[in-house]
Amino acid sequence: MKRVFPFLASVINGLLFIIVFISLKGHVINVNKVIPEGDICMLLYLLPGIIASFISRGENFIALFIGSVICIPLCLLIRHYFLLEIRSYWEELAYLTSAVFWSMLGVMLVTLYRVWSRQTRRQ
Results as ranks from 00 to 15, higher is better:
residue 36 P to G: 07
residue 74 L to P: 02
residue 1 M to R: 11
residue 72 I to M: 03
residue 99 A to K: 01
residue 72 I to W: 02
residue 87 R to F: 07
residue 105 L to H: 09
residue 95 Y to E: 13
residue 20 V to A: 07
residue 67 G to H: 03
residue 100 V to N: 02
residue 25 K to W: 10
residue 29 I to A: 10
residue 38 G to N: 04
residue 43 L to R: 00
residue 74 L to Y: 03
residue 62 I to G: 04
residue 97 T to H: 02
residue 16 L to M: 13
residue 10 S to F: 09
residue 100 V to K: 00
residue 41 C to S: 11
residue 111 T to D: 11
residue 7 F to T: 09
residue 114 R to K: 13
residue 82 F to E: 04
residue 5 F to D: 04
residue 114 R to Q: 14
residue 101 F to P: 01
residue 38 G to R: 04
residue 121 R to L: 14
residue 85 E to L: 05
residue 112 L to F: 11
residue 112 L to D: 05
residue 84 L to W: 02
residue 21 F to E: 06
residue 41 C to V: 07
residue 39 D to Y: 08
residue 37 E to N: 10
residue 57 R to T: 13
residue 1 M to H: 13
residue 53 S to D: 13
residue 95 Y to H: 13
residue 65 F to K: 02
residue 112 L to V: 06
residue 4 V to S: 07
residue 97 T to W: 04
residue 33 K to G: 07
residue 10 S to M: 13
residue 17 F to T: 14
residue 43 L to V: 12
residue 35 I to E: 00
residue 91 E to N: 09
residue 94 A to E: 14
residue 7 F to R: 01
residue 49 G to C: 10
residue 63 A to F: 10
residue 8 L to H: 04
residue 86 I to E: 12
residue 100 V to H: 02
residue 5 F to L: 15
residue 109 L to E: 03
residue 104 M to C: 01
residue 92 E to L: 09
residue 90 W to M: 10
residue 43 L to H: 07
residue 21 F to I: 08
residue 53 S to K: 04
residue 43 L to F: 13
residue 56 S to W: 01
residue 13 N to H: 11
residue 5 F to I: 15
residue 42 M to W: 06
residue 64 L to E: 09
residue 70 I to M: 11
residue 56 S to R: 03
residue 52 A to P: 10
residue 100 V to P: 00
residue 60 N to K: 05
residue 39 D to V: 08
residue 71 C to D: 05
residue 49 G to T: 10
residue 45 Y to E: 09
residue 59 E to C: 01
residue 46 L to P: 00
residue 14 G to Y: 04
residue 61 F to R: 09
residue 71 C to V: 08
residue 10 S to W: 07
residue 19 I to M: 11
residue 37 E to C: 01
residue 66 I to Q: 09
residue 76 L to K: 02
residue 94 A to M: 13
residue 85 E to K: 07
residue 62 I to Q: 10
residue 75 C to H: 01
residue 35 I to P: 01
residue 62 I to D: 05
residue 71 C to K: 00
residue 30 N to C: 00
residue 4 V to L: 14
residue 39 D to F: 05
residue 28 V to P: 00
residue 64 L to M: 14
residue 95 Y to K: 08
residue 73 P to T: 03
residue 108 M to R: 10
residue 32 N to R: 06
residue 92 E to W: 08
residue 120 T to Q: 12
residue 120 T to A: 07
residue 113 Y to S: 13
residue 77 L to H: 05
residue 113 Y to F: 14
residue 81 Y to H: 11
residue 54 F to M: 14
residue 93 L to W: 08
residue 45 Y to A: 08
residue 1 M to A: 14
residue 121 R to K: 14
